Amino acid sequence: MAVAAAAAVNLGTGAYAQGSLPTDQAVRSVVLVHGAFADGSGWRGVYDILTARGYRVSVVQNPLTSLEDDVAATHRAIDRLDGPTILVGHSYGGTVITEAGVNPNVAGLVYVSALAPDVGETTGDQFSEIPAPADFVIETGADGFGFVNSEKFKIGFAGDTSDPDAAFLRDSQVPINMEIFGTPVSHAAWKEKPSWAVVATEDNAIDPELLRHTADRIGAVSVEVPGSHVVFLTQPEAVADVIDTAARSAHTN
């Protein structure tokens, strides 16, 4: 999901100055996990802010071929970093971090407009009581891989982006194997790791009420940010601030 979002980020104007991590801060690494229909490049703005503040950041490139494959890709990224890590997931990436977050190097979880199944639940199960908004339309091909409908893409997925950026995101979609949405998780890392949640108040892919319900269910510290489903891209500093807070707050064994 490559887009020049980082150009709009004015580094050094956030809550913390460049490279200002306390010398005694234990959690100094962050792993960012994208969701469906996207790739890791959408995290560029968040990446730039966090690295400027002194964090070592790794961005996962999920293949979106199976939950098992995406969890394995996330474990590889976690294992390449030194010391305790904050694991961040967007949208379906929340399912991935729920499974992968049991990795002993993970000190905390941040859910960004994300889902968080319990053990035995699937990504699709999350929508049983609060369905996705009507403008979020997925089209599944004969091979079982899905794309977001082109005509509905901006309003359903990226409503607060510019028309050119929305068009690029639409035309650079990474399709997801739709079977993933029916795959249950076998671990729920939020039961044992501290969690934070960013609720995008204008999300039109996951109803904000579902995001609030999810944050409450997992006991997450919830922060509401005005933005669409791609709030990490359009509000990178607000999202980076939550990740920064998680890293400063999480305690290691």
Rank of each mutant, 00 (worst) to 15 (best):
V119A: 07
H34D: 06
Q25A: 15
A238D: 11
W196D: 00
T234Q: 12
F157T: 11
T252R: 02
W190M: 01
L81T: 09
P175I: 10
P236M: 06
H251P: 03
E209L: 07
Q25F: 13
G94V: 03
A77M: 11
S150A: 15
V119E: 14
T214C: 02
P236N: 11
V27S: 03
V225G: 06
E209G: 03
V33Q: 02
L81R: 04
P84G: 07
G12Q: 12
D163P: 00
N10A: 15
F157K: 09
Q173W: 14
F232T: 04
E151Y: 09
S195N: 02
A200N: 07
F136V: 02
V60C: 06
V242A: 05
A114E: 07
K191P: 01
P133L: 12
M1L: 12
V223Y: 10
I49Q: 10
A8C: 02
V30W: 08
L210Q: 06
T85E: 00
V230Y: 09
V199L: 03
A8R: 15
A132R: 13
D24I: 03
N149I: 02
A17Q: 14
Q18L: 15
P184S: 01
P175T: 13
V239D: 09
D203T: 05
V230M: 12
S195I: 01
T65C: 02
H251F: 08
L67E: 05
G146Q: 14
Q235D: 10
V239I: 08
T85Q: 02
N62D: 08
F168I: 11
Y55R: 04
G40N: 11
G12S: 07
T13R: 13
T65P: 01
G45D: 13
E68A: 15
S162R: 05
G124V: 08
T252H: 02
H75S: 02
Y16V: 00
P104Q: 09
K154G: 01
N103I: 03
D70T: 06
A238W: 10
N105R: 15
E151W: 06
G94I: 04
A114G: 15
S41E: 09
F147E: 02
S172H: 13
